[in-house]
């Protein structure tokens, strides 16, 4: 083995590990989220500004909280609170929904972590 061979192997290892990090690493953070209410788009909200959004639905008002580039359902008038248990969403493609109150939120980013999700 020549000295150049070793160098090539090292560079190849670096390149391949970089590729794994770049393409298999954590997805890119979302830029904004789209909130749907009653089947139509209610509002696009930025994930960079802290805010609590009060979204009206058939059961009452759901609260969505934006903080540190993430969004979550923080309060909901529904029974099982599945939307709140979905927790924080921060990556493109992530979504949570409150079916009883007909409200959903999806994070939009440069990349989407999922093509589609079914519940």
């Amino acid at each position: 083995m020549r000295p150049g061979d070793l160098l090539v192997l090292l560079l190849a290892a670096v390149l391949v590990s970089y590729l794994y990090l770049a393409f298999w690493g954590p997805g890119t953070a979302g830029e904004y989220a789209v909130i749907h209410a009653n089947g139509s788009e209610w509002q696009k909200v930025s994930l960079h500004e802290e805010h609590e959004w009060q979204v009206p639905g058939p059961l009452g008002t759901s609260t969505l909280e934006v903080r540190d580039g993430r969004i979550r359902f923080s309060d909901s008038p529904c029974q099982n609170k599945a939307c709140i248990h979905s927790g924080w969403l921060s990556h493109g493609g992530e979504a949570a929904a409150c079916l009883p109150n007909r409200i959903s939120v999806q994070v939009i980013g440069r990349d989407r972590r999922y093509d589609s999700i079914s519940f």
Binding site: G4, D5, V8
Partner: peptide, 13 residues
């Protein structure tokens, strides 16, 4: 500086 191994990996990449 390269031998067969280095050439081969470079070419494969």
């Amino acid at each position: 500086p390269f031998g067969p191994l280095g050439y081969s990996v470079l070419s494969a990449l």
